[in-house]
Nucleic acid binder design. Structure first.
Lengths: 180, 180
DNA sequence: TCGCACATGTAACGTGTTACATGATTCA
DNA sequence: TGAATCATGTAACACGTTACATGTGCGA
C-alpha cells in the first residue's frame, strides 16, 4: 500500500489540511508567513509534494470554482491520511530522533492537537524531555573528552548546542503543565 | 574559476583539513564521533564531496603508503581553499542567515579559530547576537498575531523556538567575553 | 492598459540517502 | 580460515532549489 512515508514537508502539508481544506496557494502562504517557513515555501517543493501525497492516497483534491477566479484545488486528508498522521504523531520520541531530527519532533508536537488527547501529548512531552536529557548527557561527555589543545571555538560551539538542548528540555517540562 | 560555493558539508570538510591533513576515512570518523555528525558521515556523501572540493581546486589529496595498509589519500587545503574558507568565516551574520541557516552560522563559528583574530571573532559573535535578537523579535510578533482559537500546541511550538533563540543569544553574548 | 494578487505547475540541476562492491591487513 | 578494521568508492533514487511558464480577474 503506502510504500514510502512522507518527508517532514509532506507531514507539514498533511497536518495543515487537517485544520481546514486548503489549496496549494493557501499552503504556500502559510509557509511563507509563519515559522513553518523552514520547510520551504517554493512552488517547486510544495506542488510536487502535494501530488505525491495525493498519489499515495493520503489527501484528496477537489476543484473549487466558487471564487470565479482560476479554479483551485482544495485538499483534504483521506482516512488513510488521517490514520498515518495519527501514527506519526504517536511515534515514540527517542534520543536518536532528537539527535538526528529535532525539527521533525517539534513539527510533530505542533500538530499534536490532531490527536485531541491530553494524555498522549503529555506522554509525548515527557518522552521528549527524557530524550533531550540523554542527548545532552551525550554532548556533556563529548565536552569532557575534548583535548586541552583544541581551539576554544569548537568547545564553545558545543556549549551552544548544550544550551539549546537545555532550553528545550526546560520548555518541554514547563509545557507538560498545559496538558494536565 | 570556482563557480559554485560548497555546501555546509563541504565547508565542514574544508575546515577540518585545515587542522591537520586527513583522509576520507579519518573525516568520516570525526563526523561519526562528534556533534558534527549532523552533517552526515555516510561514505556516499563525503567521498563525492571531497572529489568536488578537489576538482574545484580547494583541497589536494596526496597518497600515503606509510601505514602499509591500503594507501589512503591525505587531503590538505590549497591556497584557494584557505582563501575561500577565510572569506566564508568573515561573511556578515544577518537576520536572514540566522533564520534560514543557523546551523551554518554555528558551523562557521566552530571553525573561526582559522581566522586567528580575536577582533574578527568578537565581531562575528556581536553580529550573531544582534541577528538572533531580530529573529526573536520576528517570532514574538508572530506570537502576538496568533488567533485566539488556534490550538495551544502551535503556540507552544513557537515558544520553543523563541526559547532556543534566547538561549543562543545569551550564549553568544557570554562567548564574546572569551575574545576580549 | 498596466501591473498586481491569485493560482498551478514544469524542467534542470545538485546533493544527500541507502545499499552495494571491493580489497588489503591484522588477529583470534 | 574467518571476522574485524582499515579504506575508498559507485549506483539508484528521492527530494529540494532556482528559474521559468502560463493564465485569470481586479483595481488604479
Amino acid at each position: 500500500m503506502s510504500q514510502k512515508t512522507p518527508t517532514n514537508l509532506g507531514y507539514a502539508l498533511l497536518g495543515l489540511v487537517h485544520q481546514a481544506p486548503m489549496s496549494g496557494y493557501d499552503l504556500r502562504k502559510v509557509f511563507a508567513e509563519t515559522a513553518l517557513g523552514n520547510y520551504s515555501s517554493s512552488p517547486g517543493a510544495i506542488y510536487p509534494a502535494l501530488a505525491r501525497l495525493e498519489k499515495q492516497g493520503l489527501i484528496r483534491g477537489a476543484e473549487d470554482r466558487s471564487h470565479s477566479l482560476r479554479p483551485r484545488k482544495l485538499y483534504t486528508p483521506t482516512d488513510a491520511g488521517r490514520k498515518l498522521m495519527r501514527g506519526w504523531l504517536a511515534e515514540e520520541v527517542t534520543q536518536d530522533t532528537v539527535e538526528h531530527d529535532i525539527d521533525g519532533v517539534m513539527l510533530r508536537f505542533a500538530f499534536h492537537s490532531i490527536l485531541d488527547s491530553r494524555a498522549a501529548t503529555r506522554r509525548f512531552l515527557e518522552q521528549f524531555a527524557v530524550a533531550l536529557d540523554a542527548a545532552l548527557a551525550n554532548l556533556d561527555a563529548q565536552s569532557e573528552l575534548f583535548p586541552d589543545d583544541a581551539p576554544i571555538h569548537s568547545r564553545l560551539a558545543l556549549d551552544a548546542g548544550r544550551e539549546q538542548l537545555r532550553a528545550t528540555a526546560k520548555w518541554a517540562r514547563r509545557a507538560v503543565g498545559h496538558f494536565e
